[in-house]
Write a protein that binds this DNA or RNA. Structure first.
Lengths: 230, 230
DNA sequence: GCAAAAGTGTTATTCTTACACCCATGT
DNA sequence: ACATGGGTGTAAGAATAACACTTTTGC
């Protein structure tokens, strides 16, 4: 009888940030790390590592993120546990995968070099292990959750214009949104309130700044998040 | 440095079935098993056990379900990985938890005895470990998913009346639904089609039988489920 | 003044909800 | 016939979507 002690437990994270290309189009990107050992030597892979016996799964994800990419995400949620027998060619690994969102300014802290690089989420190369499946699922979760939650908050700073907020939605959902209807939906949701400040210095009419009411962590992020009452 | 080999990996499952009480009210129930060893000796707990190195997480859940409760669920989906350091008093256990739905006739196979018993999901005693939190989360997932997916199918046989289908929704969501509107919503969803059979022998007008088109597994049940195209 | 984004108004359409009403069966 | 659940019709209200239009800035 085989003991479960022979199964390795690891944590990996899909980190999403928004980046704007040379033509001014914003889209979803993620940082990957190059593998420095077999199997899949030199392949690009999700950042991750073993779980320490003294730390929780989420702490493990946070620590590993900081170590490998210098990032402290504004949002972190468990995605799925991947445990197929043959997902690693040599040993049995069960990976608890998290997904994270970081703001554009925070994303700058990733020291893109030989072993860490940003990739457009919709145009990935072939990754190590089952990581292509994992990223696709995380991307689906991001897009689904964008439709009904206030998760866009995690991509933005404290204050923002409604055009910036709409830009987040358009970048993630990959479709244009009507500015007029978007404004009304946001205002009637109660998640967002106008401040008394405007952004001057632009080429056009100065837009008003808005704030989210409450924390990002108000979005449901698992069993430990307090449920929203009916 | 602590190795991950000291972490035990287990699989547990929250099994839901609908049961009707003596007053004819239907609600969500689940079977629990009595613990036969420390810690939490004699406490009620979710069925579960260690993951064998040679089987996938889902296979492990299925096998354990069959062994401890004789059940083969119509629906099985991963719920969450619970991994807090202190969730078991003695050793470090990470549990991959699944949730399952079984039909009423299948639920009969549970040999309720001294060590296995059915409980109403909304009136549980204090369970072992963090299992109360787990059941509450699974129940929330069930209720949430009932609103937008065709998951009710897993509680029913191949053919059913719309009143039976509505009964499933009402039992899970704990609120009455308008029969007329419910009918139109189901028919316009395209998930369900009328057969040419009716149920005779009732005390009233014979209701028509319906069928779901396609399999239950068409509901999104994780990364391995094919995504529904836009 | 003109271009362009900010912001408001209006209308058509679809979805939801409530509820009145007819239908078909066993007793 | 009548009670009861099966099944249809209809209309009010809410949410969505499309788009015309006004406002305010920099140039």
């Amino acid at each position: 009888m085989t003991s479960s002690a022979s199964i390795s437990l690891a944590v990996s994270t899909v980190i999403f940030a928004l980046r704007t290309d040379e033509r001014g189009v914003s889209s979803v990107w993620l940082p990957l790390v190059r593998r420095i050992r077999e199997p899949h030597l030199d392949c690009w892979a999700l950042p991750g590592g073993p779980v320490d016996a003294a730390e929780s799964l989420e702490s493990s994800a946070r620590r590993n993120l900081l170590e490998t990419t210098q990032l402290e995400p504004a949002y972190l949620e468990q995605l799925y546990a991947f445990g197929d027998v043959d997902r690693s060619p040599d040993r049995r690994v069960v990976s608890i995968v998290y997904w994270a969102l970081v703001r554009a300014d925070e994303a700058e802290r990733v020291t893109a070099g030989e072993n860490v690089r940003w990739f457009a989420a919709d145009a990935l190369p072939e990754l190590a292990f089952d990581h292509n499946v994992i990223v696709d699922y995380a991307l689906w979760r991001l897009r689904t959750k964008m439709e009904y939650s206030r998760i866009a908050q995690a991509f933005l700073g404290d204050q923002f214009t409604l055009a910036e907020l709409r830009g987040v939605y358009e970048a993630v959902l990959q479709k244009p949104l009507d500015p007029a209807n978007f404004r009304r939906q946001m205002e009637s949701s109660g998640d967002v309130v106008a401040t008394d400040e405007v952004v001057t210095g632009g080429r056009h009419r100065p837009p008003r700044l808005y704030r989210y009411v409450g924390d990002v962590q108000l979005v449901d992020a698992g069993p430990l998040t307090p449920r929203i009452p009916a």
